[in-house]
């Protein structure tokens, strides 16, 4: 094989590969998607209270992410990001960074919000951010998951200026404002965490005294 041909062949393979990657993937369920939605909705126990059943509703973001298997084309992604950014609300006093000690507790709590008849959370159980399910944070906690990137030394690396603080607040409030269809939940949008609770978690990530940034 001469050099020129080799080069040509190589490029062709690269282009072909790209073309393949750009080809839209079939939406999950294919032509049965509608029927599947119907089947899913009707497969729950009749004695689930109505307010539990509302958890099956999908907003536009959820519907779109499903359609694209969480991998929307950039244009669609941008639209979703704008839509989600517009939902962000701030604490009344406007202060976006709170108490890291409170944040430390909230980041570790993985319970809350479980429903059903087999093993629901007791009423009033505190809901946490469950950040450790997906992120490494303080060094001393080794039982962390890896669905998201490591956030160890987040403040040390990224700084503690106003923009960074606002970014972290916004990210926790509505993760999809930056990355459409990310695996990270939208904690503020769903009122899973209050704005105040979010400020505490921001402090846990940013405050130089927080174990995320110390030792």
């Amino acid at each position: 094989m001469n050099f020129k041909f080799g080069l040509f062949f190589g490029l062709t393979v690269i282009f072909a590969g790209q073309a393949l990657a750009d080809k839209p993937v079939e939406a999950p369920g294919g032509k049965f998607a509608k029927e599947a939605e119907q089947m899913f909705r009707t497969s729950f126990r009749a004695d689930n209270p109505k307010y539990w059943m509302t958890r099956l509703e999908q907003d536009e973001t959820m519907k779109t992410c499903l359609q694209f298997r969480d991998n929307p084309p950039r244009k669609v992604g941008e639209k979703l990001e704008k839509l989600n950014a517009a939902t962000i609300r701030y604490p009344v006093d406007g202060k976006l960074i709170g108490d890291w000690k409170e944040g430390e507790k909230l980041a570790a709590v993985g319970t809350g919000g479980h429903i059903g008849f087999i093993q629901p959370d007791p009423a009033g159980r505190v809901r946490g951010g469950n950040c450790y399910a997906c992120h490494e944070l303080a060094k001393k906690e080794i039982a962390y998951g890896t669905i998201g990137p490591s956030l160890r030394e987040f403040g040390k690396i990224r700084g503690k200026d106003e923009d960074t603080i606002k970014y972290v607040y916004d990210k926790i409030y509505n993760s999809n404002a930056f990355t459409a269809c990310t695996n990270m939940p939208r904690f503020g949008l769903h009122s899973w965490l209050t704005p105040e609770q979010i400020t505490h978690i921001v402090a846990f990530l940013i405050d130089p005294e927080s174990p995320v940034n110390k030792d």
């Binding site: 599947a36 999908q58 973001t61």
Partner: peptide
Amino acid sequence: KMGEYIFYRRSGPQDF
């Protein structure tokens, strides 16, 4: 196919 649909379907307060 219907299982595939449910596998990717996101909903609930954690967007799961």
